[in-house]
Design a protein around this nucleic acid. Structure first.
Lengths: 239, 239
DNA sequence: CACAAGAGAGAGCACTGCTCTTGACACCAC
DNA sequence: GTGGTGTCAAGAGCAGTGCTCTCTCTTGTG
């Protein structure tokens, strides 16, 4: 219902004029929505205002997005992809694991500071009445995968202490997560996995606290604090 | 202008009938607002709906709260006080520091799970167009103070390694924060202070990730994971 | 060329926060 | 007891929202 086929276009290249215009207009709408998001935030995002900016009647936008929520979902996925790409770009697999870790954390924070409203949409309170569909999960995982890969690589190269014979609790950390952390080669025990997930959430805890104003009155030199904190996190996970 | 004096009442006990009714109605409004908040979340909180529930005309509510934002501020302060009180209640100063730490973290998480929308209002994305006034800062600090006191007590009793002669960066961590951590007796060096703030933000990072759905697909046994993670944090800060 | 599908516009519904005016009521001093 | 004062609720109204429905025009295809 989001991209209905033109009647008769069954081939894999159905680029009729209509389709091209449709794709362009869709892109224009999401672009305008992203601009609006950056200005007024997620909850203040108005479909009518987006329509105005694009030069369409508000009702016409519904030809492209079935609802405000669907538009929001698009923005969320795009956002996760953007911060995920930023994290991936910042990761140099050749660098020492500890430096990789801090570099990726820095990239996440930099993206968050540059796109505060988008960050809030992704990692802040869920928009009321809106339930994120499953589609968002893979995109949402990208940053975690980057961080996990750093740990996995470190484990494989022997930097990280491998399984110390600790018990393995399958319900504590999902298989998918274990997979990211290098699967069974070498096997990381529960303690490392718990710490990995803690560090992951802590990165965003730190960024959120800074961005959402919880550090007002506590931390002044936020740049320096963040770098040192991420270093401490790297130590925590064993890098 | 929120509680104007009746003409002539100059004494310190101006409980005329009017004042009493006003106070009661104010409480009724905030109660209704809190109920609504729990149902539809912060951004969906409607002043008109609150008025309907109380049995007032929407315009009448403005006699009590100058704007939706002012009502929101009340809810925010009440929320910080509630979670702060929960944290304080959970802290037994006689217990070993590590147990105190985990107990307080558990209490914060329990409160968050019981009041997800209020938690989101406090620690999630800021409501667009709304700037939290200064009044909220002291209330917001309560949980941090509880956690800081645990560290400070541990340092005083020698459990925590005191200043290792590390450099002291006054801009890294504010004086107020240093004060919470026991001031200069004994002096904790920067590393400990950085870790303390990191741990503080990490507690909420973990709770937020669970509550906002970021752990979907990663952590299954959230209860057990949280306990272990908070234990790791305690280790991180030196408890 | 004709016909069906796609797309935009506009009106309309029910809702929102907020403002302003109007009329009623309670309090307090005299 | 009565009149002035000031508080307060109600209602209408403004500008905005998401969303739906219908009407009309355009476009692509058989």
């Amino acid at each position: 219902m989001c991209a209905p086929l033109t009647s008769g276009t069954i081939g894999q290249v159905p680029t009729t004029v209509r389709d091209r215009v449709r794709a362009e207009l869709t892109a224009e709408i999401t672009a305008a929505a992203r601009r609006q998001l950056a200005e007024v935030g997620a909850a203040g995002l108005s479909l009518r205002a987006v329509a105005r900016e694009v030069g369409l009647a508000s009702s016409a936008v519904y030809r492209y997005f079935a609802s405000r929520d669907e538009l929001l979902t698009r923005l969320i996925i795009d956002g996760y992809d953007a911060v995920g790409a930023a994290a991936e770009d910042a990761d140099d697999p050749a660098a020492p694991p500890r430096e990789r870790w801090v570099a990726v954390c820095r990239a996440v924070r930099a993206w968050a500071l540059a796109h505060p409203h988008e960050y809030a949409l992704l990692y802040g309170s869920p928009v009321p009445g809106y339930a994120a569909p499953r589609d968002t999960v893979p995109a949402a995982a990208r940053v975690g995968v980057v961080l996990g890969r750093i740990l996995g690589d470190a484990a494989r190269s022997g930097v990280l202490p491998a399984a110390a014979g600790g018990r393995r609790d399958p319900e504590l950390v999902s298989d998918a997560t274990a997979e990211v952390l290098g699967g069974e080669h070498p096997a990381l025990d529960d303690a490392v996995r718990v710490r990995a997930l803690l560090a992951w959430s802590s990165v965003f805890g730190a960024v959120s606290f800074e961005l959402f104003g919880q550090f007002v009155g506590s931390v002044q030199a936020t740049d320096r604090w963040f770098d040192r904190a991420m270093g401490e996190l790297a130590t925590l996970v064993g890098l």
